[in-house]
Nucleic acid binder design. Structure first.
Length: 292
DNA sequence: AATCGTTCCTGATAGC
DNA sequence: TGCTATCAGGAACGAT
């Protein structure tokens, strides 16, 4: 489940290795992943394009291509963008042809979309559940893409202040804080794992209504949000739910994880028992003793 | 206008 | 043991 730190890790790594390379062709066995344009048009338009830059917006990875084209990839729940070499051993079955963690890790083996580059490497999308989305758009269409246009500010934007945070949060004053933190149209990039972790650090019960939060509590959330996301980027993400970087390595945030998927364990801060509840249909983990 | 439920998909797991 | 039913989960979309 890649969230902001994981997607940032992927985008940064891809930008380093693939910037300036030419896209020679693509392959897919799951055409439904490609949302726009039609598959034949997609193939036609992407061939020969130079990758000028790769960056993140929310949880989306954006490839800025030559001729004002933009490739947008959202990995959703189980998507992994990988960089390496693969060999087609039988029709539609690819095997990593490079030493390292890409070789045997089962999580990397659900390849459904491959970009062939002119340096004989490939960028491959492994996605067990095929929820990922791929779009190829001309500049104007890209700039008006509503999924991107409606995204809230990035929590790590240095111009995103506490005052801004308060203002946008209070647009949903009746919502539960966990749901609001995860709402991409309010703030972009935070998902189920980091919302739980942020609220643990801030000692806030995830069910609290935004309107009930005091100034000091909001400040705690704001600070925890920035610190945890930055820390997680330094640690190259969190791999409790399958995440891999583009070379197939796991992230190292796990040692920082305090509540997510720790139902029944003791809270490291107060010794309380971590519980799991459902908030808006999603699992939410917290310590009822110290998160008030 | 805002909120809720459904949908996409498939490996893992629980239950019989 | 082996089968089947249920679950997880981001976000667009349709329904209320």
């Amino acid at each position: 489940m890649p969230e902001l730190p994981e997607v940032e890790t992927i985008a940064t790594q891809l930008n380093k290795v693939a910037r300036g390379l030419k896209i020679e062709n693509i392959w897919t066995d799951a055409p439904k992943i490609i949302k726009r344009p039609s598959l034949s048009q997609f193939v036609k338009n992407i061939k020969g394009k130079i990758i000028e830059e790769i960056y993140r917006k929310g949880k989306n990875i954006i490839f800025k291509l030559s001729d004002d084209y933009f490739l947008v990839i959202h990995q959703k729940l189980t998507g992994h963008l990988l960089y390496g070499k693969w060999k087609e051993i039988s029709k539609g079955k690819f095997l990593a042809d490079i030493e390292g963690p890409l070789k045997d890790d089962i999580k990397n083996q659900f390849l459904h979309f491959i970009i062939f580059l002119n340096n004989n490497f490939q960028i491959a999308l492994s996605d067990l559940r095929k929820f990922a989305k791929v779009l190829l758009l001309k500049k104007e269409e890209f700039e008006n893409l509503k999924e991107l246009k409606s995204l809230g500010p990035d929590p790590l934007d240095k111009y995103f202040t506490f005052k801004d945070f308060k203002n946008i949060l209070f647009k949903k004053r009746n919502g539960k804080i966990k749901q609001i933190l995860m709402d991409q149209n309010i703030i972009s990039g935070i998902g189920n794992i980091y919302s739980d972790e942020i609220l643990w650090w801030a000692k806030i019960n995830p069910q609290r209504k935004v309107a009930s939060l005091k100034e000091g509590e909001l400040k705690e959330i704001f600070i925890a949000m920035k610190e945890i996301l930055e820390k997680a980027i330094k640690l190259k993400g969190e791999s409790i739910s399958d995440f891999r970087d583009i070379f197939g390595n796991k992230g190292n945030f796990d040692k920082m994880r305090k509540v997510y998927q720790k139902e029944g364990e003791r809270c490291e801060r107060c010794g309380g028992k971590i519980i799991r509840i459902k908030i808006g249909g999603r699992s939410s983990y917290y310590c009822p003793k110290c998160q008030q």
